[in-house]
Design a binder for these strands. Structure first.
Lengths: 119, 119
DNA sequence: TCAACTATACAAGAATTATTGAAATATACA
DNA sequence: TGTATATTTCAATAATTCTTGTATAGTTGA
């Protein structure tokens, strides 16, 4: 993954509005939502929702498909998986035993580890 | 996880410099790096590195421990795991069969799925 | 074609963030 | 105590992003 792709995705999710949009779309899965639905679900002016959706689309975080006069948006879950891989690339290089258990648990987001202790 | 925590983490990673810092620290694992090392590794003015590290620390993305006159920074990996759980909360609600395979593969970041097809 | 509807594009001001240089704080060591 | 080192804080400017209102483009169905 290119660094610019990663920063664009993170920039997209750094706004409360865009984070709400993304999580809403993740919940909807393959069904997705059309722009107007998103705007009214989150009580946003349609042009503001459109502004944020444009940025998210450009970052690849959501996809858009035209349906007549509607625009249907869907979350791009695979991109999130690529992003996680990018972040943990070469994790704990040189000391694989350190992060073995961390990466193992990262396979099950439900299992949250306690914070790293500071020596 | 609180929404504000999530947006702060994403905001932290939305800058190329901070993303570089985070990935550098992930590679170092528990060993971490002191501020000066980080600045010279990334060819940054020390005060600029400090500026970004402060924000990342406030977001919880990195932790800091004093070692004499040095400040040692470490990546907070568990927070990233919480974040992933937060993002995929109620994923594909109502149609669990849709995302079953996606979530299964999310357990192994190496396996990247093709983009979601748009109907 | 016309009117209603959906959505995006554009422009302007407010607000936020980034970068740099200079100064300050704190620790280490002779 | 005095000097050097490590890091942070502060101030000022530059750059970017957010929000709102208005205008434009495309689609639908009478």
């Amino acid at each position: 993954m290119e660094k610019q792709t990663a920063t664009q995705v993170f920039e997209s999710l750094s706004s409360g509005i865009r984070l709400d949009i993304y999580r809403l779309l993740v919940k909807r899965g393959l069904e997705g939502m059309v722009a107007g639905q998103i705007a009214s679900a989150l009580d946003l002016p349609p042009n503001n929702a459109s502004f944020h959706l444009k940025g998210m689309t450009h970052a690849g975080l959501v996809s858009v498909a035209q349906e007549g006069r509607y625009q249907r948006y869907r979350a791009n879950l695979p991109l999130m998986l690529e992003l996680i891989a990018y972040l943990t690339e070469e994790c704990c290089a040189g000391h694989p035993e350190q992060c073995a258990e961390i990466r193992a648990d990262s396979c099950c987001p439900e299992a949250i580890l306690p914070p790293i202790t500071q020596d």
